[in-house]
């Protein structure tokens, strides 16, 4: 790893002023499980690393009647062990559990997974389904942005030098809901997704509503809005509808071929996992 200076600010204000001062020569660090490896491979070469772990405002997972606030330093383990996440955001719980392994989940953060913005990031499809908002502070104050506007492309996000993501906010689904994240990898642990599908079903005031989001099959995570529309209001989709929905889902994604899978395989799996994810959500809502 190239040499760098490490700053460990104890307040947000201090962190922002360091990041602003050094501009593109500085990078913020949460868990560091991506950043340190990227630095080792010289994919990024910051002169100053700003460790956010001592800033109290960034810690923890908090649940209120409005929704869930996941602080920038909350690890995947903290999030998946949160009772509120298990009760109200099961797709996010599945996603955290599918991420890497126990030891890495004890360091890696959910917000860090978003900020890394890699197409296969496991927590993102679930956050897309839950309509998550990214909360940012910077030299010009605070702002809020929907996650699908925040992620711009592989490793690209809508942020300027000096800004820090303080937390992600997930509004509480309006109605009884179920959710899941199905990850296809070559093995169960320590693997990047070939395809990741998050599905959430909500019994809201306009009847049953579905949300479907996909990872690793486009430059950014994507929602399959047409597929969602086709399912609107239907509590027990039959095989014909599931076929139609899975075809619509395939139209929403644009996978590439890489070392982990080819295009045809990824598309076929988008179709198959879509059906399974919907089935899982429908069954889970019946059980309750």
């Amino acid at each position: 790893m190239l040499a760098f200076e490490l700053e460990r600010p104890r307040s947000l204000q201090e962190a922002i002023s360091i990041l602003e001062k050094f501009g593109n020569r500085a990078m913020p660090k949460a868990g560091g499980t991506d950043l340190l490896m990227w630095m080792k491979d010289r994919l990024v070469t910051p002169e100053v690393v700003v460790d956010l772990s001592l800033i109290p405002d960034l810690a923890g997972v908090n649940f209120s009647k409005d929704g869930l606030r996941i602080g920038a330093m909350a690890t995947c383990t903290e999030v998946l062990e949160s009772a509120a996440v298990e009760d109200h955001f099961p797709a996010l719980r599945d996603a955290c559990l599918s991420h890497s392994d126990w030891l890495i989940r004890n360091r890696a953060t959910v917000v860090g997974n978003v900020c890394s913005a890699v197409p296969s990031g496991d927590v993102m499809p679930a956050l897309y389904c839950y309509d998550a908002t990214i909360r940012i502070v910077g030299p010009r104050g605070e702002r809020s942005i929907p996650i699908n506007k925040f992620i711009l492309g592989p490793r690209k996000k809508d942020m300027i030098a000096g800004e820090i993501v303080t937390h992600v906010f997930l509004p509480l689904p309006e109605g009884k809901s179920s959710g899941c994240y199905l990850k296809l990898g070559r093995r169960n642990a320590l693997d990047l997704a070939q395809v990741g599908v998050a599905c959430v079903a909500i019994d809201g005031k306009n009847g049953r509503e579905y949300r479907l989001a996909y990872g690793a099959v486009a430059p950014t995570p994507v929602r399959a809005l047409e597929a969602e529309k086709a399912l609107q209001g239907i509590k027990a989709p039959d095989d014909a509808l599931l076929e139609k929905v899975s075809a619509l889902a395939k139209e929403a994604v644009k996978p590439i071929a890489d070392v982990r899978a080819g295009v045809e395989y990824r598309l076929a799996m988008v179709g198959e996992l879509t059906k399974r994810a919907i089935d899982t959500c429908v069954e889970r809502l019946k059980e309750e």
């Binding site: 460990r8 499980t33 340190l36 490896m37 460790d51 126990w102 004890n106 360091r107």
Partner: peptide, 28 residues
């Protein structure tokens, strides 16, 4: 040394982590 193998595991405040993903200055 890239967070995969787990042979560098230590317990940090009782929590198992891979020590190749932790900067020494962070354990202050």
């Amino acid at each position: 040394e890239e967070g995969e193998c787990g042979t560098c595991t230590v317990l940090l405040d009782g929590v198992p982590v891979k020590s190749c993903t932790v900067l020494a200055l962070e354990v202050e």
